[in-house]
Simulated scan of single mutants.
Amino acid sequence: MAEDWKKRLTMYAIVTLQDSDEVVLAPTNWLSLDKKQCYWPPFKSPDKCMEAVQNRIKPETGGKPWEKLNISFHREYFTFDMAKEGQKETKELKERSYLLATGFPGMLKRQRLECTQEMLKQQLPPEPSASTSRMPADADKDELLQMLRDIKSTVQENSAMLKKLLKDNTVSEVPSSTSIPPKDVKTKLKLPLRTIKDVARIERMLTKNATTRQKYVKCLSRLGGFGQKDVIKNIMQHLLTDELASKFNWQGRGNKKPFSKLILTDVIRDAALKQSVTRIDCDAEIKNYLWSISDRIGRSRP
């Protein structure tokens, strides 16, 4: 009896789609009994998809069941709002794990210690009191997460600068009498790309020449935008025509090509990082952009 009551109340689950590594909400009636698979709607619009989740509609279209995707199950919640909060926390935890895995933990610890020592030099420590002896848990978590983001960005920028300095130093050490002037790579950034052949050509150029890649990163990072969604939208529209973008999706399902496999995707990530957009957020916004491209094309046609 208690189990039946719990099943009726438990309405939403947080899961990770293994194909796209995306943390999403799903009604519990979409999950398989072993919680290893989940029905997922074929809708192109993210808003329509979220509406289907919130309303817990039956996982089928025209009597035909939706495709089942492999998932990693996290937890369940009674209400949609509680599940949304849980989804946010899970994403933050996942992002923090990624930063710790790729951001040189020893350097993180050392930089945080140096930062603390510098603050202590500049100001006297406040008198301890019962009201200020403890920081709120949420504020401490947000502060740590922001610090990890800042440090990761700094480490990547320093790495890029170090590579450039080493390269310049190697060239300068060659004797002038035997040195050969480096061939100037005159890369014409013919954007936006319009055909699959254009994409293949750019992929070959990016594979062969690191200078070309840096030129594209520099060009795309200057586009800017208000927030991560706007940054990725500006990059994608500058890089691909809508017609060409409609021939891709993230994993290459159906008769479309996989955008996640392109070297161009790494270029977008590097450009977005210069605008403080993390890899996880960048991938999510690219998926949303490719998902909704057909709707934009339809609206633009008379």
Rank of each mutant, 00 (worst) to 15 (best):
R204D: 12
I235C: 08
D270F: 01
H238T: 13
W250M: 13
E203I: 01
Q251R: 09
G227I: 06
K208T: 09
L193D: 05
Y216W: 02
I235M: 15
L223K: 10
G225S: 07
Q237F: 08
L262H: 08
V217G: 10
K233G: 01
N249I: 01
K247G: 09
I196P: 00
K218G: 04
F226N: 14
L206A: 08
D270W: 00
L191T: 07
G227T: 12
L193R: 05
L206R: 01
L262K: 08
K257D: 06
T265A: 11
P192I: 06
Q237K: 15
R194I: 07
L220Y: 01
I202P: 00
S246L: 05
G224S: 05
G227W: 13
A210W: 01
M205Y: 02
S246A: 15
R201C: 04
K229E: 14
E243A: 13
D242G: 08
T187G: 10
R222N: 11
I202M: 14
A210T: 10
I202E: 12
I232R: 11
N234L: 03
L244Y: 04
E203H: 05
R253F: 08
K190T: 13
G252W: 12
V199H: 01
K261L: 10
K274H: 11
S246G: 06
T195F: 09
M236T: 00
C219Y: 07
Y216I: 08
S276I: 00
R204K: 15
M236F: 02
R201Q: 12
K257Y: 13
K186F: 09
I268P: 07
A210V: 07
N209Y: 09
L239C: 01
R222K: 15
K233A: 07
A271Q: 01
P192L: 06
